[in-house]
Computed example of a mutant assay.
Amino acid sequence: MRDSIASLRHKIRSAQDLKSVVRSMKAIASSSIGQYESAVHSLDDYYYTVKLGLAASLGSTNQYAASHGTSTPQDMAPQQGLPSSSRVPAVGVIVFGSDQGLVGQFNESMVEFVVASLGNIPGKKHLWAVGERVQSRLQETDLATEVCFALPNSIHGITDLVGKILISLEAQREQGVINQVYIFHHRPESNTIYRPVNQQLLPLDDVWQRQLMDIEWPSNNLPEVMPNQDQTRRAFVREYLFVSLFRACAESLASENASRLSAMQRAEKNIDELQESLNQTFHRLRQSGIDEELFDVISGFEALS
């Protein structure tokens, strides 16, 4: 009886300690979500500004010029300075996951989405994983990862990560290893916590340019790129690549912490239920022990009488 009560006391203390850890992780996840979501929201306006600059520098103002009866310089043709490839496609795939666990099905759902999406994309695949956990999940499939990047611990480390990815991308493209690049990551959602999405990062082809041309210019004054249009265009392209990767990483980290917060909330609920069950069992056994001792006292008193 005493061993059972001692064992229950140990389990109750362990549950209390585990609950303290879960609460700490909940607090960390909540604060992390705030900083990453703030970064994503702050990038929205900047991302839109970069796309407007690209639309202007690539000559997408033709529609505005035509509607206003003006002319647009011919040297802003959309095809100028853009990468193109007529070879058999070799696809570079950047997959954002997590470095740490306790995130539910975060990495598993991403790997399933990557496998299903890449089945519709022709060409040889070169996968780059961002996060050790998602890399280990990818290795369980037929898709082998060639490079693995470590995720930053805060918003300040995303810039260094994006810089490393861009340097590797440029080296691979110069060597002719890849000519297409896709990004896969989770995006925060209000109803389902997050959802997996993908984006074609390169090449900046006709489809991408037509999407830029659909953007409405925010004023009636037509933009003018000066003094060096080619230099300006290349600068906007570099900034577009950077902000696209930065945004994908920030959204993935926000989704990861949202998934971890949800997992910790479920764990806290399970711990509460376990504690209630343990406490009930403990009190029942303790009361049973007290009753037996009282019966022994009464039986001894009756025997002496």
Results as ranks from 00 to 15, higher is better:
277 S>C: 05
267 A>P: 08
81 G>T: 03
16 Q>D: 14
124 K>Y: 09
249 C>Y: 03
265 Q>L: 12
212 L>P: 02
7 S>C: 12
114 V>S: 07
110 M>S: 02
77 A>M: 05
294 L>T: 02
278 L>I: 05
186 H>M: 11
2 R>M: 11
16 Q>V: 13
199 Q>T: 14
163 G>C: 00
101 G>H: 10
130 V>W: 11
221 N>Y: 10
183 I>V: 09
178 I>C: 09
234 R>P: 00
70 T>E: 13
248 A>L: 10
113 F>Q: 09
218 P>F: 00
111 V>F: 06
161 L>Q: 12
262 S>V: 00
29 A>D: 10
205 D>K: 06
116 A>T: 07
232 T>M: 08
162 V>A: 04
235 A>T: 06
118 L>R: 01
142 D>F: 05
57 S>E: 01
267 A>H: 12
217 W>P: 00
90 A>F: 11
11 K>F: 11
166 L>N: 05
162 V>C: 05
159 T>H: 11
88 V>C: 02
270 N>S: 15
29 A>G: 06
221 N>M: 11
264 M>R: 11
95 V>P: 04
270 N>L: 14
209 Q>I: 15
276 E>W: 07
177 V>K: 14
112 E>Y: 07
79 Q>W: 14
139 Q>H: 09
46 Y>N: 12
273 E>R: 13
134 V>L: 10
61 T>I: 11
142 D>Q: 08
172 Q>L: 08
106 F>W: 03
76 M>R: 09
254 A>W: 03
193 I>L: 14
163 G>R: 13
202 L>S: 07
151 L>I: 00
37 E>Y: 05
191 N>E: 15
164 K>W: 02
3 D>H: 12
31 S>L: 14
8 L>T: 09
254 A>H: 07
41 H>A: 13
